[in-house]
Design a binder for these strands. Structure first.
Length: 267
DNA sequence: ATGGTCGCGCAGCGA
């Protein structure tokens, strides 16, 4: 009596996002990572398989229900969840697009939007124009979601490094793809809706990245970018108690080029 | 400026 104890929130909810670069290749790693980290929700990108090929049985056996919007060879997104999701959305309003890059669903109080933002290839290219148009439609969608759902998380591979802290060599990347001003302005429009980049709610080590090029020994040199993000609405952000990048799986044999972003939230 | 490595799928594209 008379002394206080730290308040440890019980039942924190853990949300993670991981570009797995082929779920077929990475399924054993995803299963290991789920077992070790026990997220409530894992948003995955670049599953690179069609819906009939989705490995639901293995993931169900590991305690995860699966929502997915698959595509053969390219793209494809999924949400692996300990509880059932509802109100599933797989397309951006106003964008006719065969590329499977969007998956949103509701889990209890939480609305989760999983994005695989287009890479854009090169500034000024057709793919770059597609990326900016996609981001425009995505912002309108997120604004509508934010208006409907107070507890909103927008996660995924954004293919944008929000600012120079998120770039290993800002001079080399200046106005290059993933770092150009129009891309960063498009990202800022998501923040302007009221979302917070959960990673920046906390002190972080310098040179913290989530993606490293397979080429030129990017990971060994920590020549990376932070492009895998967990954004949170105000109601959710004030519940955020941690936001990190788990580099462990990037060190495994035959890794994805991305590491998972992970955030914890109290009730 | 180029190329370096993966994944898919079997040549070359996308990242």
């Amino acid at each position: 009596m008379g002394y206080s104890v730290p308040i440890i929130p019980n039942n924190p909810m853990r949300i993670a996002s991981w570009n797995v670069n082929s779920l077929r290749v990475r399924l054993p790693q995803v299963l290991d990572w789920l077992a070790q980290n026990q997220p409530d929700l894992l948003a995955v990108q670049e599953i690179k398989l069609s819906d009939p090929e989705f490995p639901s049985a293995e993931l169900n056996a590991a305690g995860y229900q699966c929502l997915f919007s698959g595509q053969k060879t390219y793209n494809g997104v999924a949400i692996l969840a300990k509880i059932a999701g509802s109100d599933v959305v797989t397309d951006l309003p106003g964008l006719e697009d065969p590329q499977r890059r969007v998956l949103a669903a509701t889990f209890g109080e939480l609305r989760l939007v999983n994005f695989y933002v287009p890479n854009g290839s090169e500034v000024g290219s057709d793919k770059y124009a597609y990326k900016l148009d996609w981001l425009d439609k995505a912002a309108a969608f997120v604004a509508a979601e934010a208006a409907r759902y107070p507890r909103l998380a927008v996660v995924g591979d954004f293919n944008i490094a929000p600012d120079d802290r998120d770039v290993h060599d800002p001079a080399a990347w200046r106005e290059k793809i993933l770092c150009s001003t129009p891309e960063r302005q498009a990202f800022q429009r998501l923040l302007d809706i009221g979302l917070a980049d959960s990673f920046r709610l906390f002190d972080q080590e310098e040179a913290s990245f989530s993606w490293w090029d397979y080429r030129a020994a990017g990971f060994r040199r920590n020549a990376g970018l932070r492009i895998d993000l967990i954004l949170a609405s105000p109601d959710l952000a004030q519940r955020c108690i941690a936001s990190t990048i788990d580099k462990t799986p990037r060190k495994w044999e035959r890794p994805s080029d991305h590491a998972p972003a992970v955030a914890d939230f109290h009730d």
